[in-house]
Computed example of a mutant assay.
Amino acid sequence: MLNVTTANTGPTGQVIDTTRHRALGTVSRASILELTRAADGGLTIAEISARTGLHPSTARSHLDRLVNAGLLVKARSSGGQPGRPAWRYRTVPEEAPAPAPYRALTAALLDHLARQSRGDARAEAVRAGHNWGRHLAAATPRGKKPVDTAMAVLRGLGFDPDLKQTADGHTEIHLYTCPFLELVSQNPDAICGLHVGVVRGALEQAGAPASDAVLEPFGAPTACVVRLSLPSGATRPV
């Protein structure tokens, strides 16, 4: 008898991603995915539990399965509240990733941090990002203001940044694209720490004093937000 093996393909002839297919194999996970897609700023485990009636532990299990399948991404978002922030989940947008060399470098760095950081991968990632940001800013044409140089670095990495001034006079950078999103699930704290380190390093390389920039994942409905505490010289032409 002749055995013929054919590729698993979907209706359009595309090869089925079996990991994602299995992740959506239950009504609960499919419903969670739809709820998360409908929430611009993403949802926490507590919010998913309240909307579905699932126990928080069950909701967490389903969410982690969707994250592992690449259908959701998670990051910590405090919403300005004190204490350790909860995980917030959102769907993965269709977007262009960072150039392959940057992704490979970042993946290698995350792997190194996981093995060497002794439990404080975020702090190590911030330091590594700081050095990387200085290096990138040094190779970037200097802007009229330090923040302009930082914006150019972020654009070069593919973050689609937008500079905003808040009503109380503070400066924010909204990041509408995460070109390293595929790596976030490996270590969300480390990858977000790496990003804020890049901003701090770029600002300092461009002439701004040390900044305590803070990255708020999902700080806006459609963006992550970098909140800057900059002296006036960093926002005025130099």
Rank of each mutant, 00 (worst) to 15 (best):
A50S: 15
R51E: 12
H55Y: 05
P56A: 14
S61W: 10
D64V: 07
R65V: 03
R65E: 08
L66V: 06
V67L: 05
N68Y: 11
N68P: 09
L71N: 11
L72Q: 10
A75H: 01
A75T: 01
R76I: 01
S78R: 15
G80A: 08
Q81I: 00
Q81A: 13
R84I: 06
W87G: 06
R88K: 10
Y89M: 08
A96I: 03
P97S: 08
P97M: 04
P97T: 01
A98N: 06
P101N: 12
Y102A: 13
R103N: 14
L105W: 14
A107Y: 09
A107I: 00
A108E: 13
A108T: 07
L109R: 06
L109H: 04
L110G: 06
G119W: 05
G119I: 03
G119K: 13
E124K: 12
E124S: 03
A125V: 00
V126R: 05
G129M: 00
W132S: 13
W132K: 05
G133Q: 06
R134E: 15
R134F: 09
H135V: 14
A138N: 15
P141M: 09
P146I: 02
P146H: 10
D148I: 10
T149W: 04
T149S: 03
T149I: 04
M151V: 10
A152N: 11
A152Y: 08
V153I: 01
G156C: 11
L157F: 11
L157E: 12
D160H: 14
P161I: 07
P161D: 06
D162P: 02
D162I: 01
A167N: 04
A167K: 10
A167P: 10
G169S: 12
H170W: 09
T171Y: 05
T171L: 09
H174A: 05
L175G: 13
T177Q: 07
C178E: 10
P179Q: 11
L181A: 08
E182A: 12
E182Q: 08
L183R: 01
L183G: 03
L183C: 15
N187L: 08
P188T: 03
D189E: 13
D189I: 00
I191D: 01
I191W: 03
H195S: 12
